[in-house]
């Protein structure tokens, strides 16, 4: 059986993982949402096409998405140290996680917003709606179900990355899995952390799907 110390360590690990993941999702959306909107709006079929702006953000997002997460983690260490004063532990991992998540989220947002029926956008334009109104009252609201589904997927992707960050002293459950499960070969702890990660992923998934269905008015009751 686990000792009391190990139990409290695992509970702390859950807290660390949740903290890392949720903060990264938050910061990821703070950066990625506007970027996704910009990609949609300036795209070829957008409401304000601008090939140059689109290209810049297109390239940025492609570059960051093509760097493997572990490499990115090492690459941004100096930046992390600059922002937080240290480059290990759960909080420090938020920096590379955010940088990895933002361009990915931007793409997800872009694909959600592109699903909005062009006719509805045109109807809004014919009523004299400004582009800002169209972004907030048509694009984001009409696409909300898809945005939430994609946020769920993004959260679980970040959860996966956060466990990977454990290998480099990233904190949270992944860190425990690597230190106890691998270096000290304590299979019970390894198993527990893996189960906990799976359960977390399930909880995120179910919550996301529940909310997305809750806000969707396109279903016949």
């Amino acid at each position: 059986m686990l000792t009391a110390r190990e139990v409290s360590m695992i509970i702390e690990g859950i807290g660390g993982t949740l903290w890392m993941v949720l903060m990264s999702v938050l910061f990821g959306y703070i950066l990625g949402l506007p970027m996704g909107i910009l990609l949609t709006v300036t795209g070829k079929d957008g409401i304000r096409p601008n090939a140059a702006v689109y290209k810049v953000f297109d390239v940025i997002s492609n570059i960051f998405r093509s760097i493997p997460f572990l490499i990115l983690l090492l690459l941004v260490q100096p930046l992390t140290r600059l922002i937080l004063g240290k480059s290990y532990g759960a909080t420090a991992t938020i920096v590379p996680l955010t940088i990895a998540a933002a361009p990915y989220i931007a793409r997800m947002v872009e694909s959600s917003l592109k699903e909005v029926d062009h006719g509805v956008i045109e109807a809004a334009q014919s009523m004299g709606a400004s582009n800002w109104t169209i972004i907030f009252k048509v694009l984001l609201t009409e696409a909300r179900t898809s945005l939430i589904v994609n946020a769920t997927i993004a959260t679980n992707t970040i959860l996966g990355y956060s466990a990977m960050a454990g290998a480099c002293g990233g904190g949270g459950l992944g860190d425990i899995a690597v230190r106890y499960g691998y270096h000290r070969w304590q299979p019970d702890i390894l198993l527990i952390t893996v189960v906990l990660l799976v359960v977390l992923a399930q909880i995120f998934q179910m919550t996301g799907m529940f909310i997305s269905r809750l806000v969707d008015r396109r279903r016949v009751e």
């Binding site: 509805v120 334009q125 014919s126 009523m127 004299g128 009252k137 048509v138 609201t141 009409e142 909300r144």
Partner: peptide, 30 residues
């Protein structure tokens, strides 16, 4: 100027996530 030139379409183009009354409110919100 467009506010005084209404348009209706073959495929209606209603906001699917808004109730009927909120759809009608949309131009008033604008």
């Amino acid at each position: 100027e467009r506010k005084s030139i209404g348009m209706i379409f073959q495929h209606f183009n209603l906001l699917m996530q808004r109730s009927v009354v909120d759809n009608v409110c949309f131009p008033l919100e604008i």
